[in-house]
Deep mutational scan, measured.
Amino acid sequence: MQRVNMIMAESPGLITICLLGYLLSAECTVFLDHENANKILNRPKRYNSGKLEEFVQGNLERECMEEKCSFEEAREVFENTERTTEFWKQYVDGDQCESNPCLNGGSCKDDINSYECWCPFGFEGKNCELDVTCNIKNGRCEQFCKNSADNKVVCSCTEGYRLAENQKSCEPAVPFPCGRVSVSQTSKLTRAETVFPDVDYVNSTEAETILDNITQSTQSFNDFTRVVGGEDAKPGQFPWQVVLNGKVDAFCGGSIVNEKWIVTAAHCVETGVKITVVAGEHNIEETEHTEQKRNVIRIIPHHNYNAAINKYNHDIALLELDEPLVLNSYVTPICIADKEYTNIFLKFGSGYVSGWGRVFHKGRSALVLQYLRVPLVDRATCLRSTKFTIYNNMFCAGFHEGGRDSCQGDSGGPHVTEVEGTSFLTGIISWGEECAMKGKYGIYTKVSRYVNWIKEKTKLT
């Protein structure tokens, strides 16, 4: 034993070699072989497995989906700052455009905790909710729209109204504003409101030439003092309507412009014939205590009207009353817009006519005020429907199939267009061939041609 100890002390290297040989010859039971080890760690190889990531292109799944990435790591994937920024906006807080917040056709661009709407022409605001041009839906104005110097929408209202708090709607500024039905039992019968379409306001006024200088022999019209197929109006439903009495009662109609003036057809009036105007009328054979009678003290036909040349060209006249009318729910003026808007309103496509005229061709006159909704007829169809001249200051309205029309005794009465609950004068009943005849239409004086003249002559002093 002493000898062994001496050998170990003198030859430590020998001992180490012996131990190493023993270990190498022993069977290893701690580690699995290569094949079995792979069965336990069965993990798919990654895209760049075996390579240094710093030297390969980034992978979106590896960089940002398996674990949260930084902007720089995302930049490695896209290799483009702009594309990385677009991805980053949604990656950080989701897609803010998912709810489609942009209105009126706006395009949404996502941002971090926010979004941006790219608005089409005519709109602005956070969600493109603000109209900035009158060309689109009248700028959301209830009545009139004008573009300011910086191309912003400025709404306005006709006389007797003021802008509401929203700067879009119009509200009454006087007790009985024009064009409004205020009798409670008839307010439910107000005709369907007309909503502004998209309009090209630059070209809204037709490029028409008034044929002022045409000389033409007097034409022989049949029954051209021209509501057939209409309905009984309720008291106060058309408070701007008046009836004219002269040699015979209810020979023509008219509309209240203001307390002192009536507008009617020029062919209705004769110099030297006494005319009485009755406002607030409903049943011409009954006294309903809503009527107001006034005498006409002055007749002003349009300066281009000449019955000797043509009885229905420039067929418009103004009547001055001896005493002002007292405005109330049964006696209310009709609204008159400017030339541009009167023309736009007419193009809405349908209007209402009213009167006490004959209820059928050569038949009896109506006792109760009649009204009828009539569609506008395109000019080409209008011209083809008659052998008589249709001037540019006239328009056609009615039904091709016949059966409904204005008729004798309705002449001078109103053709009105309702705009968001307020009625505007767009025409004056003038003439036609018979009444409600198939293929024939009622012919009306186009008020847009005469609004400046009306307003100039009827100013209240």
Score class of each variant (00 low, 15 high):
3 R>D: 06
4 V>G: 11
4 V>N: 11
7 I>W: 13
8 M>D: 08
10 E>H: 12
16 T>D: 03
19 L>C: 07
22 Y>F: 15
22 Y>H: 06
25 S>Y: 14
25 S>T: 11
26 A>R: 02
27 E>T: 09
28 C>R: 02
31 F>E: 15
33 D>E: 08
34 H>V: 11
37 A>K: 00
38 N>E: 15
38 N>F: 07
41 L>T: 09
41 L>I: 14
44 P>Y: 10
46 R>Q: 15
48 N>L: 11
48 N>W: 08
48 N>F: 04
48 N>R: 09
50 G>Y: 11
54 E>S: 15
55 F>L: 10
55 F>V: 15
57 Q>G: 14
57 Q>S: 12
59 N>A: 09
59 N>C: 03
61 E>H: 15
65 M>Y: 15
65 M>R: 15
65 M>Q: 15
67 E>Q: 03
69 C>M: 03
70 S>Q: 15
73 E>N: 15
76 E>D: 15
78 F>H: 15
82 E>H: 07
85 T>P: 15
85 T>W: 05
88 W>L: 15
90 Q>D: 11
91 Y>D: 10
92 V>H: 09
94 G>E: 11
97 C>K: 01
98 E>G: 08
98 E>I: 08
103 L>T: 09
106 G>Q: 01
107 S>P: 01
108 C>L: 01
115 Y>N: 02
118 W>L: 15
120 P>H: 05
121 F>K: 12
122 G>T: 03
123 F>Y: 12
123 F>L: 04
123 F>H: 06
123 F>D: 01
124 E>P: 02
124 E>F: 06
127 N>A: 04
129 E>I: 01
133 T>D: 14
133 T>C: 03
133 T>W: 04
141 C>Q: 00
144 F>V: 02
146 K>Y: 10
148 S>F: 05
148 S>E: 09
152 K>I: 07
154 V>Q: 13
156 S>V: 05
156 S>I: 04
156 S>K: 08
157 C>G: 00
161 Y>E: 00
162 R>K: 08
165 E>S: 11
165 E>F: 09
166 N>Y: 02
168 K>L: 10
171 E>M: 11
171 E>S: 07
171 E>A: 10
177 P>S: 05
177 P>T: 03
178 C>F: 00
178 C>I: 01
179 G>I: 00
179 G>D: 01
180 R>A: 05
182 S>T: 12
185 Q>M: 08
189 L>K: 12
192 A>G: 13
196 F>M: 08
197 P>K: 13
198 D>E: 11
198 D>V: 11
202 V>G: 11
213 N>I: 08
216 Q>L: 11
218 T>E: 13
220 S>P: 13
226 R>L: 06
228 V>C: 10
229 G>A: 11
232 D>P: 12
235 P>R: 08
239 P>I: 01
240 W>E: 01
242 V>Q: 00
247 K>N: 11
252 C>D: 00
252 C>E: 00
253 G>A: 11
254 G>K: 00
256 I>T: 01
256 I>S: 01
257 V>K: 02
259 E>K: 07
261 W>T: 00
265 A>D: 00
266 A>W: 01
266 A>E: 02
267 H>R: 06
269 V>T: 06
269 V>H: 03
271 T>K: 09
272 G>W: 06
274 K>N: 12
276 T>A: 08
279 A>R: 00
280 G>Y: 02
281 E>W: 11
283 N>R: 10
284 I>W: 10
285 E>W: 11
286 E>W: 08
287 T>V: 10
290 T>I: 06
293 K>T: 11
293 K>P: 04
294 R>W: 01
295 N>P: 03
298 R>F: 03
298 R>L: 03
301 P>V: 11
303 H>S: 08
304 N>I: 03
305 Y>D: 00
308 A>L: 11
309 I>M: 12
311 K>M: 07
313 N>M: 09
315 D>Q: 02
315 D>G: 02
317 A>V: 04
319 L>Q: 01
320 E>M: 05
321 L>G: 00
329 S>L: 04
329 S>M: 10
335 C>A: 00
341 Y>D: 06
342 T>L: 04
343 N>M: 06
348 F>E: 14
348 F>Q: 08
352 Y>L: 12
354 S>Y: 08
355 G>P: 05
364 R>M: 10
368 V>P: 09
369 L>I: 07
371 Y>G: 14
374 V>W: 04
375 P>R: 15
378 D>I: 03
379 R>N: 04
380 A>S: 09
382 C>H: 02
384 R>F: 05
389 T>I: 12
395 F>W: 02
395 F>H: 01
395 F>P: 00
397 A>K: 02
399 F>L: 11
401 E>W: 14
403 G>N: 10
403 G>E: 13
404 R>D: 13
404 R>E: 06
406 S>H: 12
406 S>I: 11
407 C>T: 04
407 C>P: 05
407 C>K: 04
408 Q>A: 05
410 D>C: 11
412 G>V: 06
414 P>E: 03
418 E>Q: 15
419 V>Y: 12
421 G>M: 05
423 S>E: 03
423 S>V: 10
426 T>E: 01
428 I>E: 00
429 I>N: 15
432 G>L: 04
436 A>F: 08
436 A>N: 15
442 G>F: 05
443 I>K: 03
447 V>P: 03
449 R>S: 12
457 K>R: 15
458 T>A: 06
460 L>K: 14
461 T>I: 08
461 T>N: 15
